[in-house]
Simulated scan of single mutants.
Amino acid sequence: MANASTNNQNQYKKLIQLLEEQLAHSNQQNEALSKQIESLTEQVRYLTKLLYGSKTEKSKYNAPNGQTSLFDNDPSFNESEHTEEQSQQMVSYTVVRKAQNKKRNDSLHDNVEVKAIHHHPENTICDCCQGQMTEIGSKVIREEAKFIPARMEKVQHIEHAYECKKCKSDLYQKSQIKRGKAPQPPIQRSIAGPSV
């Protein structure tokens, strides 16, 4: 019996020792986690201050890590300069700016001269019936900026489409359409022309 109770006591001691080791280990983990949380909280606070904090010139001179600024002790940096007229009159005004939704091609203003280059098909004779084709439409393919020293010009490339009315009216023929082809721009999806 005494041997069994000694055995139980040894098991309890081992169990207590194991639990104390686990508790010490979890305390170390908790301490490391709390340090990490504190570090991350400080980073969030710093980044929030950078993003949403005051944006004055004075903040440029605030030194980090508790260092004092060279400009704090000098009274000439704290007082604003006034002339006699400024001291007597106080003028306040509000500037209201309108948000503009600018498109990429709006950078060429209305006062810029517009030059249109029309691109017609090389041949407007119908391949099927050899009749003369008539124009059915055109569209502006792109606009590009052309720089001429001391002035700017807007160049519009317009492709024209032609259709044969004779083949169109004939139910047994396919409709014949030809379209002029504008040259490729020097820079894709850009308004810059070769001269720019």
Rank of each mutant, 00 (worst) to 15 (best):
G53T: 11
L47V: 12
T68L: 08
Q173I: 13
F71I: 07
E85I: 12
Q176M: 04
V114T: 15
C126S: 02
I16E: 00
F77N: 09
I16F: 15
S69V: 15
K174I: 05
S107C: 11
S169K: 03
V95L: 07
Q28S: 05
S169Y: 11
M152V: 07
Q88M: 05
K60S: 07
C167L: 00
T56S: 02
N8V: 08
E113G: 06
N27A: 13
C164M: 11
H118M: 07
I141V: 12
T124Y: 10
E20T: 09
D170M: 10
E159P: 05
R179V: 09
L15Q: 09
H109N: 07
E79N: 12
P75R: 11
E163I: 03
L18I: 04
V91Q: 12
N7Y: 06
E21Y: 03
Q43H: 06
Q156R: 05
V96C: 08
L18V: 12
I187H: 02
Q86V: 01
M152A: 08
L18T: 05
D72R: 11
A63N: 11
E163T: 10
N105E: 09
E143M: 08
Q173S: 09
S54G: 14
H119R: 00
A192S: 10
A150D: 02
S92A: 04
G193Y: 09
E122R: 15
Q43S: 10
H109D: 07
A2N: 09
R104H: 10
D127P: 14
E143C: 06
E143P: 08
D127R: 14
Q188V: 15
Q86G: 04
P149D: 03
T83C: 14
K178G: 01
C164T: 08
A63L: 05
I187T: 02
G193V: 08
E85D: 06
V140Y: 01
M133V: 06
I148R: 12
L40D: 06
